[in-house]
Every structure is written in C-alpha cells, then in structure tokens.
Design a protein around this nucleic acid. Sequence first.
DNA 1: CGGATTTGACCTGCGC
DNA 2: GCGCAGGTCAAATCCG
Length: 548
Amino acid sequence: MGKGWGLTLDSDPVTSNFFTNKSNSTTTVAGGSFLGLKQHHHHRDMFQFPVSLAGSRDNDRRGTSASSSPSDDTKIPIDEVDFFSDKKVRVVDDVKKESIEAPASDLDVNTGLLLLTAGSDQSTVDDGVSSDMEDKRAKNELAQLQDELKRMNAENQKLKDMLSHVSNNYSALHMHLVTLMQQQQQQPQRNRETQAIQESKPEEVTPLQILDLSRPSAAGAEAAETISHSSSEERTRSGTPPSNVEKRVNREESPESESWGQNCKVQKLSSGKPVDQSTEATMRKARVSVRARSEATMITDGCQWRKYGQKMAKGNPCPRAYYRCTMAVGCPVRKQVQRCADDRTILITTYEGNHNHPLPPAAMAMASTTAAAASMLLSGSMPSADGIMNPNLLARAILPCSSSMATISASAPFPTVTLDLTHSPNPLQFQRPAPPLTQFQVPFPGQPAPVSAPQLPQVFGQPLYNNNQSKFSGLQLSQETGSSQLGHQQQQHQALPQQPPTLADTVSAATAAITNDPNFTAALAAAISSIISGGTHPNSSNNNNNRQ
DNA sequence: CGGATTTGACCTGCGC
DNA sequence: GCGCAGGTCAAATCCG
C-alpha cells in the first residue's frame, strides 16, 4: 500500500525506512563507471539511497535485507551495503581502495586509448623508434596515469564526502522524525497520564486487566477470555443468584472485559502502570462509528452478534440496540445500532473493542479500517482533545479522498472516528488520480488480520440500500459504479478482474489498504507532522467535531 | 430444547 | 446528594 494515497501514504516507504528502525537506513553503493573505474559487481547503482528515500519499496526491501539478517548477508554478500552500520566503513574503505588499486587494473583500457593518442602525435614527428622516444612515451604515459589516478582519487574523495553528507542528512532526518513521533505520542499520553494518576486510587490490578486495543488482538483476547472464564466460574460456583451487593463485589473483583462501563472501572482500579492505564482508558473508549443508509434493522458486517439490550436514547425517537459479538466466547467487541433521528434511513453503527478471534474474510476489511482508525486515533498521532490539531486533518489522512466522509471527534465523551457513508462524494475529490485498485490487498480467506491492527467488525459489503445509486459511495475512491449494487459479503471478494470494481470491492480494498502497513499510524503521524510543519491545512479552521 | 431476543431492573458516570 | 442518561444484566419470552 502507500501508493496512490497522496502525501499521507507516500510516507509509507519513509515509514519503512524510518520507523522500522535500525537497518532501514541501508543503501547501496555503486557507480563503478561513474567513478571511472571498472564496474565491480558490488558497486552498482550509486545513489540508490535517495531513491530509496523517495519511496521505492523494492529498494527499501533490498536495502533492509542487506543488513537485517546474517542469512541475507550471505545471500547478498557485497551487493548492498548498510552505510549506517559497521559495514559502511568497510564499503567506504573499499571505495577508497578501489580508487587506488583499481585504476591499475584498468590501465589497459584507458591507457590504450590515451597512448594511441599520444603515440600518434609522436609518430607523426618521428618514424624511427628510438629508446629515448620509448622512454619519453613511457614517462608521458606514467604522467598521464598519475594524473588520472589523482583525478580519480579526488573524485572518490568527493563521492565519499557526498556519501557522508547524505548519510549525515539521513541520520539527522531520521532522528528528527523519531523525535517528532515520540513527542506526538507522549504529549497527549502525558496529559491523560497526569489526569489518571490524580484520579485513580492505588489498588491492585493484574496485567490481564489491561487490555490494549492497539496491540495485536491475541494477547488482549486471551486476557479477556481468561478473565471472562474465571468470572464465569466464579458465578457458577456461587450457585444462587448474587444479590445486588454480591454482584457489585463480583464485578469489582473480576472486572469482566466485556463491559464497557466496567472497563471504565477497571481503568480506575488499575494503577500499576500509569502509561498503560491511561492508554488503555482511551483505547477502550475509542469508537468507530459508521453511518450508512440501510433499510435493515442491522447491517450485516460479517460477524455474529447477539442483542443484549435496547434503550431509548435521549433526543432520538428510535431505540438504540446493543449487540455483542458472539463469534467467540468472551469476545469484547460491542456495537450499537441506532437510526439517525434526522434521517431514519441512516443507520448509525458504532463499534468498540477488538475481536479476540479470527474474522471471516467478509469482516476483515472493515475490521482493519476501524481498527486502524481507532489505533490512529489513540496511538499518539491523535492529538489531545484540546484542539491542537483539526480532527479533519486526521480524517483526511485516513481517507484522503473522502475528507468529508470521515470525521474524528476528540472532544466527544469517547474519541470517535465517524465514517459517513451517506454523502455523495465531492466531485473535486474525484479529480485526484484514483489509486490503482491492484495496490490494495483485499484480505483472502484465512489470511490473518494485520498484526498491528486490532480487529473490528466489517460493515461493508452487504446490501445497504436497494438502489443502484447507492449512497454508499461515500468511501468510493475511484468512480461511481452504476452496476455496483452491493452483493452479499461473500461476493465482494470475488469480483472478476476485468470487471469494474464494485463499491464493496473498492471500499474493502481501501480499508484494507489503510491498514496493510503495520506502521500506518506511525506513517500517518509522520505525514501529519510534516503537514503541520509545512503549514496549516486549508480546512484546518473548519473544526468539525462530529458529535453524536 | 437450545439459542436468540425482549425488557425491566440495575449500575455507573456526570452534571447540577 | 440527587437526578438523568448511557450501558449492562439476566429472567422471561420467543422461535426454529
């Protein structure tokens, strides 16, 4: 991914370089011909380094492989060199040696031409070959060779300097980016941290009680399941239904991960690690809301849900339904479904939590999207709620082609990413070159979810609206497909290559693309920081917090 | 009969 | 402290 997403995702290769740490700063030394030397196989492609910075993924990969593992080193022994590891010195030395030694071996070629020129001059003067003339020729030859050698040395020195300069620049840039990243991540965290410390009372908490949505779901899932099981056993053992007081005690002693409200309690109970605590507190409250037109009572998103409650929400005549995921025992994912009060054809689905189980392919794309959105929202690329950054900036980063469809609210009770799929796309947005669909990887069946992305349910890819002019085009990036009436979720991944991509395909592809890169949030943060440093966004004054 | 849904009670956080 | 609103629980009910 990373291509076709404009500035934001162009940072992907940069991300690969800058944020996967260490050996990414590798580059390839080359340019034998450039040096005027015989081309050695291990000195190819001079200045691949800046190319790599510019975003060639292949270059990145090759550069990384050169120093990432010993085995790789054995495969590509000298071809690629890490200038920022010890090898750098070695290679530079090689170049140096090369400049001194190699010309000797190249003399035949160059000298031949030069001698021919020199000799021809003399031969026209004197046809007789005397030993003096031979000596003179030899001296001339030697002098020219020495000049050539000096020139090459100077050239190599220049190249070395250039290389060193580029290396230094890269290092500085790298450090700067890392620093920016850390600052962005730590600043809002510290604020919350301080607040959490002040509010929380020190009580014991087990690590299992801290479920970080930003982490791969496995750990949190296991934790959630463990907690859930233990609490279930406890309830079973108790036999009789607990009284209110007992129930209360039970909740406090075994804070089931399944309860949002209880989670808030866990967050207050936990005090061992302030950072984790504060992060968790925000993480758990992060939500992804999807607005879509649907006549159904609930959109099919590939997951199995069980309704566990319904309430009348204030200010909305339509009841709000509460669902929990039943695809796995103890899955903490919840969702709320409610019709919009203003337009009852709009169904608002709000997801929270991450699945602790594998998702069906149909549910992967949206899960990835919502997870990425939530992760980004909470990872530190999300500014604190004090309005340092326009949420729309982040929304644009999520969906650069649909800024009006994705809004992020940091001031809401829960940080919420809202994907509005009900609006017609801005025509101007379609003037941007649409990313080739092939760059998106729609998850295949059995393909694990992106490791870095907590999984959340998918809502795309189901019949949302019985209308060819599906309003679902809000997220469409490339074109409106008249024949793109959404089919069943299983069909969305079976689009024939020669057919125009369906909306579901496009959406799924886009959503998958968003999260294919484990470092998406980091890349996003970097992009944002660059945007900030480069000036304010044209719409930055339009602080459109989307509160529900 | 087992699983899903309904629905009233209960809990919790927040604002006044 | 009280009331309100959001969220959850669990017994009752429904349904295949």
